[in-house]
Design a protein around this nucleic acid. Sequence first.
DNA 1: ACCTGTTTATACCATTCGGTATAGACTACA
DNA 2: TGTAGTCTATACCGAATGGTATAAACAGGT
Lengths: 195, 195
Amino acid sequence: MPWEKSFDEEVTLEKAMHVFWEKGFDSASIADLLDRTGINRGSLYNTFGGKQALFVKALLKYDQDKRRTALAELEALDDPQRAVGEFFDNMVAVTIEDPERKGCFLFNTVLECPTHEPEVNEIVANGLREIEAFFRRCIEVAQARDDIPKSVDPSAKAKALLALALAIRVLGRSPYCDEGLQTIANEAKALISSS
Amino acid sequence: MPWEKSFDEEVTLEKAMHVFWEKGFDSASIADLLDRTGINRGSLYNTFGGKQALFVKALLKYDQDKRRTALAELEALDDPQRAVGEFFDNMVAVTIEDPERKGCFLFNTVLECPTHEPEVNEIVANGLREIEAFFRRCIEVAQARDDIPKSVDPSAKAKALLALALAIRVLGRSPYCDEGLQTIANEAKALISSS
DNA sequence: ACCTGTTTATACCATTCGGTATAGACTACA
DNA sequence: TGTAGTCTATACCGAATGGTATAAACAGGT
């Protein structure tokens, strides 16, 4: 190795991730990516391959660093009701606190699916599947502990929770009132407590 | 008037609407709009002003022709429970039947809000507000008729229904299974029937 | 000191972007 | 039959698009 890279690939990828996260694939230009990462044009193509490849890497990083990590932490609580509650409260807090109102990179990409490569669609589909599975497991465990009535359909309720989570993140990007987001989150929590 | 327009402005606007609906503002190019409307470059700028102005007109047309019309029809049923039920069933049907998977133009634009002019944000905010108000009125009327328990908070449940509706339309653009959409719709209906 | 291999910086590429200007085609009215 | 007024077609604009090529700067191995 005659020479070392002057930038950290992981740090750079994270910066690129934020660009795609904010703007989406089409609206993020190479110039944007170069500006925000600070790296050189050649370096970008050498290291990451190109815009499309960089997007995939960025989305995978988000999926790994944010979604997987967050779900794993909640699951480690070993308290399903609290896990779901914290999931939604955290989500609302993160949404409101972000001055850039980026929303969730994964959910944002859901809307772009029709124009994306199958590879991207696969990452999105897998992410949605795992979030839903997380909710389903929460419900099933709570049922086994008699915290939730057996009459509740875990699969159906899990889908509803996924839907509400997505909506909170999407509405968070728009001029929808912030208290409304918390109200929706509370409805989500109520979904698996009383009924 | 020395000469008549060779195209119907309303029909052309509808075609343009479909382009923005499919692709969103940024990804829809002037070339796309010219191709799909069939009109001339000059005609587009003369008649509609430009890309931005055309987008606003298209979104307003959608809001008028689709959202307002649909809500008015449902409200005319004078049967809140059925109105909400049909709202969600129709929504799932329309989503699944559309081969282009465009979703809902208004909901799609929610995600683009951060990059849009205040004028567009205002249209979006108003649309969301009115959909939520529709749900709220449905609940309140049903409560007045003792079809829904008074313990239900109309405002909160209306927000949850709005969220579920949005999620169905957004998920409909992705490789999320179609049966799942109907499941979410059923959960929405259940929200205001039992509890 | 001289290669070797990698990273830089920069110039360059064709294409497309949104938007404008101009010239010609056309109909209605005088 | 002008002629006025509005349409269409097309050429054109500078800027930005994603992507490539080239050449200099650099550190390690021998």
